[in-house]
């Protein structure tokens, strides 16, 4: 990876996942994987984010919240789905309170499958998101 033109700031939203992906995302930020050395960090508001990182299969109650967060994220943005349930609903198919997968509700650019994916896979996904953002710029 050549020098980054910009640091990627990531906003993470859990739409009803099991925490498995969420703790792996935080694990990717902590010393062993340490994505902050590339300037990749989690931010507290979607309005500051370049990447919207979505986990979970989208429950009925979270659908409108996901849409609102998507609208709050400024363009250009990349939406990244981490985990099987966000990508395809996975084990939660046919559940009455699950309206996902995520790409049914908002457009998705990068999928990171796995239940949960390893932190390396998540970092690879963020790198793909970066390629897409830089390609657009």
């Amino acid at each position: 990876m050549e020098a980054l033109k910009k640091s990627l700031w990531v906003f993470h939203i859990n739409t009803g996942g099991c925490n498995g992906c969420d703790i792996e995302i935080i694990a990717a930020l902590t010393p062993r994987y340490d994505t902050e050395r590339f300037g990749i960090k989690l931010v507290g508001s979607p309005r500051h984010a370049d990447v919207l990182l979505v986990t979970g299969p989208v429950t009925r109650k979270m659908k409108s919240k996901l849409l609102r967060v998507y609208k709050q994220t400024p363009d250009p943005k990349v939406v990244m789905v981490v985990g099987n349930c966000g990508s395809t609903k996975g084990v939660f198919h046919h559940h009455y309170h699950v309206v996902g997968p995520v790409d049914k509700i908002i457009p998705v650019d990068v999928y990171v499958p796995g239940c949960p994916p390893r932190p390396e896979a998540i970092i690879y996904g963020v790198a793909k998101a970066w390629e897409k953002l830089e390609g657009e710029a």
Binding site: G16, G56, K61, F92, H95, H97
Partner: peptide, 11 residues
């Protein structure tokens, strides 16, 4: 609460 309810028991 209830944002995370996925209906696991029913499934």
């Amino acid at each position: 609460m209830g944002y995370n309810h996925r209906g696991i028991e029913r499934a």
